[in-house]
């Protein structure tokens, strides 16, 4: 698995030169490998959303370089445009960007902008609709007549239809009910399993990150605080709590056990792992 996206010393400052000047991203070095499922975690205002807008050249870094497949994406208008299609970015509350008369046309907006043939556009729209679970009947409806969860799926399909090499989702579950959240998460997971697309998921839920990702990047105060596998990350719960983040509930149970003097591994973050730990503990105690 090769490098697909690479950030070198990327910094970004909003409103440079005005009284509202604010550094949102500070000296970030990150490398993402092809096929990875990475979660970017951080509390509100830690710079996650600003960071991901650098991945597809929506924001040019104030300093530093972003590479996709080894090529600097901010060289010219053409490379920036190519980056938009190579790295599909689903914004927060993406349902607010729907505008077309029918769901089909809205999903087709991205592929059409890529200059694809009509047949190819149609194939991609249908494939994307299937991936997010939108049926043929819904494709002919107006996007404004759908429910919130369905609108969200349509918006995500609009990005998936561009068939990007990297799919970035900024808080795709925000504002959905628990069922809607699970559906969206499962959909993303299935999509990753099927297409092996690199997925970068921005979230502030440790539970979701633990469940989905094979790597977690923790952002705090505009910089990367931690970067590693879920096990490595949750083992540093002291640091996570300090930066205003939680560990998954199951991990906090184990941490509390450990604090009370029981010998358990606190880097566990799945129910299965915890069960194993508890069984082991039981074996030792009885």
């Amino acid at each position: 698995m090769g490098e697909i996206l690479k950030l070198e010393n990327v910094s970004y400052t909003y409103g440079a030169g005005t009284p509202f000047e604010k550094t949102a991203v500070k000296d970030i070095n990150l490398t993402f490998n092809s096929g990875d499922f990475v979660a970017i975690i951080g509390h509100t205002g830690s710079g996650k959303s600003t960071l991901v807008q650098h991945f597809n050249a929506l924001l040019p870094p104030t300093s530093g370089t972003v590479y996709i497949n080894g090529e600097d994406i901010n060289q010219s208008a053409a490379t920036r445009r190519a980056a938009r299609f190579a790295c599909g970015l689903v914004f927060q509350y993406p349902e607010y960007q729907l505008f077309e008369e029918t769901v089909f046309l809205d999903i087709a907006y991205g592929p059409k902008n890529m200059g694809l043939s009509e047949i190819e556009v149609k194939r991609r729209v249908l494939a994307a609709a299937e991936a997010v679970g939108i049926d043929a009947l819904t494709l002919e409806k107006s996007p404004f007549d759908l429910s919130g969860g369905q609108k969200r799926r349509v918006a995500i399909a609009g990005i998936i239809a561009m068939e990007p090499e990297i799919l970035v989702l900024d808080e795709p579950m925000a504002g959905l009910d628990p069922k809607g959240r699970d559906e969206i998460l499962d959909m993303i997971k299935n999509y990753h399993d099927k297409h092996k697309t690199t997925i970068i998921l921005v979230t502030h839920s440790m539970e979701d990150a633990a469940r989905m990702a094979n790597r977690i990047v923790v952002m705090c105060d505009s910089s990367v605080l931690l970067d590693g596998t879920p096990g490595e990350i949750f083992a540093r719960h002291d640091l996570l709590t300090k930066s205003g983040l939680d560990v998954p509930q199951i991990t906090s149970v184990l941490i509390e056990l450990k604090n009370r003097g029981y010998d358990v591994d606190t880097s566990v973050y799945t129910i299965e792992g915890a069960k194993e730990q508890l069984m082991k503990l039981r074996g030792k105690l009885c």
Partner: peptide, 15 residues
């Protein structure tokens, strides 16, 4: 700004 960024991410070209 947000909507513009979102549509740009879908390859919209305003320039």
């Amino acid at each position: 700004d947000k909507i513009m960024a979102a549509q740009k991410a879908r390859g919209a070209d305003f320039e």
